[in-house]
Design a binder for these strands. Sequence first.
DNA 1: TTTAATTTTGTAATGATTACAAATATAAAA
DNA 2: TTTTATATTTGTAATCATTACAAAATTAAA
Lengths: 146, 146
Amino acid sequence: MEEGSNPFFMQTHSEILQNKGIRPSVQRVRILKFLMHSKEHPTVEMIFNALLPEMPSLSRTTVYNTVELFKEVGLVQVLDFGRGVLRYDGDLSPHSHFECEKCGAVYDLDIKPQEISKKMPRGFKVHQTYFYVFGLCSQCKKNEKN
Amino acid sequence: MEEGSNPFFMQTHSEILQNKGIRPSVQRVRILKFLMHSKEHPTVEMIFNALLPEMPSLSRTTVYNTVELFKEVGLVQVLDFGRGVLRYDGDLSPHSHFECEKCGAVYDLDIKPQEISKKMPRGFKVHQTYFYVFGLCSQCKKNEKN
DNA sequence: TTTAATTTTGTAATGATTACAAATATAAAA
DNA sequence: TTTTATATTTGTAATCATTACAAAATTAAA
Ligand SMILES: [Mn+2]
Ligand SMILES: [Mn+2]
Ligand SMILES: [Zn+2]
Ligand SMILES: [Zn+2]
């Protein structure tokens, strides 16, 4: 991992939480760790299922609460691909997303949505920008042809 | 209305439906008319409430069905601003959207999301692109300062 | 007409998220 | 340490937009 690429370089997950003024409970640390290492942009259900084996008492509600808390302090990005389920991204760097309409996989795109938001009407204040692309991933595109 | 700006120029709403192979029932024509003239990117509930006075027997389910049908034949664009409610746009020209986080109003942006989707991974097929901007509209930004 | 197909309608089911309160864990005070 | 207050987790119930479904109404075909 490059030093410059990670704004939390050299901090433990627990420290990251403390620096945000959040008590680093076992559940929160595990959820943060999972989010920061996952590349699949998991849903609450995916986080829950992944952590359940190591934390049998984990509640879905805790995952919902935690992910909401992380959103508020800016530890995760919430993505809505219009499937009725939200996905969470621990990668806060400016980038965009592609969702395969066939297999549902989500890929990162090296496109900075911020830079796009030029032509805004006078007097508008931009807080967030999201760029979503939908289509077929290379694998599903291949299979399509058969 | 300029000739070039409307792909359905000179067609009645009924004809537009027929050309899509859809039977132009009273409900469908009214819903299409409403969608094509509205600039507010209405939700199903908004469409339903707007048409109820003139069609007291209208069912919410019909609006849901119709809007789904229109989506499938490409008569509307579905927008998801992550508020748990979908919004519908009869304007099919390439453009983006701004939602005010304070008052919930949706504004059109003169930004073509298609053109952004350059750097796609090899072999990916793009079907749809959406660009969403969130923030404060000029009115709400003013009020904010008081 | 009569019959068949389509569309609309109302109600029930679904499912992700949120609300809530009891149980548990942690920190602060004594 | 023990007691007490505060924060967090947990399980269950409520919410609410959307979807499923079947009966009623409308329209087209025979
Ligand atoms: Mn990402
Ligand atoms: Mn629009
Ligand atoms: Zn795929
Ligand atoms: Zn506003």
